[in-house]
Computed example of a mutant assay.
Amino acid sequence: MTDTITFDDFTKVDLRVGTIIEVLDFPKARNPSYQLTIDFGALGIKKSSAQITSLYKKEDLLHRQIVAVVNFPKKQIANFMSECLVVGAVNKKDVMLLKPEEPVKNGSSVN
C-alpha cells in the first residue's frame, strides 16, 4: 500500500470514461506500447500512450470504452505527447484495462 491520502486528495483526481477511436503502434516507445486516441465527449479528444500490447490487439481496443485520469499534466514520451493516463489493474506484469460494465456517455465521471 502507498501513502494514505485524504478524501480531498482523491477528489482532485478526475477519472472519466472515454472511447478509443484510434490505435497506432508506438515503435519509438522504450517498452512495447500503443498510441491511443480517446473521445471524452464534451471534454474533447485526448491522446495516451499505453503499455498494453501483451493483452490487447489493436483491433480489440478500437471502440472500447476505458477509464482514464484526464487532469494530469501532459507528458512527453519519446516523440509523442500523452494527455491522459489510461488506468488498469496489474496482473503479474500485464495491465488489464478498467471499463464500465455497460456503455455510458463519453466524459462520464468515475466516482
Rank of each mutant, 00 (worst) to 15 (best):
F72K: 13
R30M: 05
Q65T: 03
G41Y: 05
V67C: 12
P27K: 02
D94P: 00
R16M: 06
K58A: 15
D94V: 00
N79F: 02
T53I: 07
F26Y: 11
K58G: 09
Q51R: 08
L36E: 11
L43W: 07
V87L: 15
N71Q: 13
L62I: 03
V23L: 08
K75S: 07
T19L: 03
V17E: 06
F40K: 11
N106W: 04
A89K: 10
N106H: 05
S108H: 11
H63T: 00
Q65H: 07
K28G: 00
L36D: 10
G18W: 05
P73Q: 14
F10K: 03
T19W: 03
T2S: 13
S49Y: 01
F72Q: 14
S33A: 15
A42Y: 10
L85S: 09
D25S: 13
I20M: 06
G18N: 03
S108L: 12
Y34A: 03
I21F: 06
S109L: 07
N79V: 00
G41Q: 07
L15F: 10
L24K: 15
V23K: 08
K46H: 01
K12Y: 02
A78Y: 07
L61F: 00
K28D: 15
E22H: 04
K47C: 01
S33W: 03
T19A: 05
Q65N: 11
F72D: 10
L97R: 02
Q51E: 13
N106S: 13
S109K: 14
F40G: 08
L85Y: 00
Y34Q: 06
L43V: 00
D60P: 01
I20W: 04
T53A: 10
D14H: 10
T19V: 02
T19I: 02
V90A: 04
G41C: 04
S108I: 09
A68P: 08
V69F: 06
I52Y: 12
G18M: 06
V13A: 15
F72H: 14
L55G: 07
V95M: 15
A50Y: 09
I66V: 13
A42G: 05
